[in-house]
Design a protein around this nucleic acid. Structure first.
Lengths: 138, 138
DNA sequence: GTTTGTAGTTAGTAGAAACTAACTATATTT
DNA sequence: AAATATAGTTAGTTTCTACTAACTACAAAC
C-alpha cells in the first residue's frame, strides 16, 4: 500500500501542477480563483439557478447574487428566465465562460501527452484498461 | 488519445473530489482556502521567508505579512530569525500546521483504497509499474 | 381570492484581503 | 564610515466577500 500511496501522491502533484500551469496560461483574462470556482460549479451543476448555486457553494443568496452580477458584467455568465417558474432564472456560461472548461481539457491533454511519451502502445492499452476498471461506477 | 484524455479527466475528478472531502473532514478547525494555500506553499518552499513566500504567491509583502500574522496567532505557523541574515526570518509549520499535509496523505490513502478494492494483485503490480514509468524524472 | 411560501433582489454593514508609501533594522557596496 | 540596498513592518486606503434584514414578484395552498 505504501508504494501505491506514493504513486498517487506523485500523480496528484502532476495533475495539480499541470492544472495550475494551464490556469496561468488562461489567466491572462482577469479572474480570481473564487470566480473560477463559480464558473466551474455552474458547469458542474449544469445551469443552476442562484438558489441551487448558493446551496452548493454554502453561501448566502445575496453573496452569490453579487458575485454573479460581476461575472455577468464581465460577460462570463448570462441568465435565462425560466418558463416553468418565472421567479427563477438559470445561469449559463458564455463562450468566454466556457474557456474554464477548455482550460481543464488543455491540462488533461498535456498529461496525456506526457503519458504517451513514456509508454509504448501495449503499455498504454494496459494502463487504459486498468484505470478504466478503477474508475467505473466510482 | 481521446480515450486516454477521458480517463485522465476521470482521474482528475476522483482526486479532486477526494481532496475536497478530506479538506471538509479537516476543516473543523477554522481555515479559509487561502490560508490552507499559505500552509501548503510554506511546506512546498520548505520554510521560506516572507519575501520568498510573497514572490511565490505573487502578492505584496505587507499582504503576506498580515496573513502570516494571523496564522501565527492561530498557532499554525512560527518564525525563526535567521542567523546568517538577521533581518530575515524563516517560516515553519507547527504540528497543527502540518495537519495540512496529513490531509493530503489522508486523501491519497483513500484513493489507494479505492484502487485496491477494484484490482487484484497482478493488476495492481502492473498498474504500479506503469504509473511509476510515467512519473519518473517528470 | 387570501394567505403562505419561494426566487431573486436591494440596502446596509462588517471583516478580510489586497495595495502603496513610508518607516526601522540590518547588510552590502563604495 | 557613508551611501545604497534589502527584509520586514506599520499605517492608511480600497476593493472584495460575506452576512442579515427587508423588499418585489411570482407560485402554491387553503
Amino acid at each position: 500500500m505504501e508504494k501505491l500511496i506514493n504513486i498517487i501522491s506523485g500523480l496528484s502533484t502532476l495533475i495539480g501542477n499541470t492544472e495550475e500551469e494551464a490556469k496561468e496560461q488562461f489567466n491572462l483574462f482577469q479572474l480570481t480563483s473564487h470566480q473560477m470556482h463559480y464558473l466551474e460549479t455552474i458547469h458542474l451543476l449544469d445551469n443552476p439557478n442562484i438558489t441551487e448555486l448558493a446551496l452548493q457553494l454554502r453561501l448566502s443568496k445575496p453573496t452569490v447574487k453579487v458575485a454573479i452580477d460581476k461575472l455577468i458584467e464581465k460577460e462570463y455568465v448570462y441568465k435565462i428566465r425560466s418558463d416553468e417558474d418565472r421567479r427563477s432564472a438559470h445561469l449559463h456560461l458564455t463562450e468566454k465562460g466556457k474557456l474554464i472548461n477548455h482550460m481543464h481539457e488543455y491540462a488533461h491533454k498535456r498529461i496525456a501527452e506526457t503519458i504517451l511519451r513514456k509508454l509504448n502502445n501495449d503499455e498504454l492499452k494496459t494502463l487504459e484498461d486498468l484505470l478504466t476498471k478503477v474508475l467505473v461506477d466510482k
